[in-house]
């Protein structure tokens, strides 16, 4: 087969995927970019006015800041929780398959159900959590009012820890047992083995978990929308929620499109930085 024919065959097989992405991703992104260049009436061309406006909009800056806090909190706690669960359930424990399955259920549950579930559990007056705390003689919580963002982080971690655990389990099972055996013979304890073998060899998995987690947390919309409606005040009005308000409440689709393009750029930049860091770590 000639080189030209090989290339043609490769393109032939790639074409459906290329078309899929072009039509369902790149074309809408281009359309979004174009819409972002127009005023809320969709007619008046404002150039990059909507983009520069975002940098002076206190509501947008606030939402971006709390989204970064939310993303950082979720990534750190979620990764630690997923890794911890994976390490525990990688041991030969009785019923570990059942535990793995149970821990994956929140991830498989619709985010709407998760949101409604936790909203009802955490309700200070009629929620089940305060009933349980009360029965145990403990003071009731009002976390949705006092620590709303941390509560949303907690719900996200609860919902996603099972999935992170599965990814880390796959990574753990790819580490040859030989390394641990050699380390044990050399007198390395469990912590030493974890930090010297497990953690470094899980770097690709950790990187993958971080990138996927970052992308999804920066785009989080459903949980604050369902659990707190972005409140109290604007305490949980994450960037995507703010974007939704601009589009569907303020009816300013030009500005909302500009905000979504800016979010895309941020996600893209942070993902590239993470990949670069990962490359250096692997080098």
């Amino acid at each position: 087969m000639t080189r030209r024919r090989q290339a043609l065959t490769a393109w032939l097989f790639l074409t459906p995927a290329v078309l899929f992405f072009a039509l369902l991703f790149f074309l809408p992104i281009g359309n979004q970019l174009l819409t972002g260049l127009y005023d809320s009436d969709g007619v008046s061309f404002v150039g990059f006015g909507n983009f520069t406006r975002a940098f002076g909009d206190p509501e947008v800056l606030h939402s971006f800041l709390i989204t970064l806090v939310y993303a950082a909190g979720t990534l750190v706690v979620g990764t630690a929780a997923g890794l911890g669960l994976a390490v525990i359930l990688n041991q030969a424990l009785p019923g570990r398959t059942l535990f793995r399955s149970v821990l994956l259920i929140p991830y498989l549950t619709s985010v709407s159900i998760v949101g409604l579930l936790w909203r009802n559990i955490l309700d200070p007056q009629v929620g089940i959590l305060n009933r349980l705390l009360e029965a145990a003689g403990l003071p009731g919580q009002t976390w949705l009012s006092t620590h709303p963002l941390a509560t949303i982080v907690g719900i996200t971690v609860w919902s996603g820890a099972g999935y992170t655990m599965v990814l880390f389990l796959a990574g753990l099972q790819g580490i040859p047992g030989l390394y641990y055996e050699a380390a044990r013979i050399d007198g390395a304890g469990p912590w030493r083995r974890f930090f010297a073998i497990t953690l470094p060899l899980l770097t690709p998995t950790t990187l993958f978990v971080s990138i996927i987690g970052l992308i999804s947390t920066l785009q989080q919309f459903a949980l604050p929308y369902i659990v707190t409606g972005g409140g109290p005040g604007n305490a949980t009005s994450l960037y995507a929620h703010r974007l939704f308000i601009v589009a569907f409440n303020d009816n300013d689709f030009g500005y909302a499109s500009a905000l979504s393009v800016l979010l895309l750029l941020v996600v893209l930049t942070l993902s590239l930085v993470q990949l670069r860091i990962g490359d250096r770590a692997n080098a």
Binding site: P124, Q125, V126, T142, S145, T228, G229, P232, T236
Partner: peptide, 21 residues
């Protein structure tokens, strides 16, 4: 009065009243 909970649901006080709280 308890501090209301920020949700998209406006029936909080009615539910408390119905629960005799």
């Amino acid at each position: 009065s308890p501090a209301p909970v920020a949700t998209t649901d406006y029936s909080g006080p009615q539910k408390l009243f119905s629960a005799k709280r």
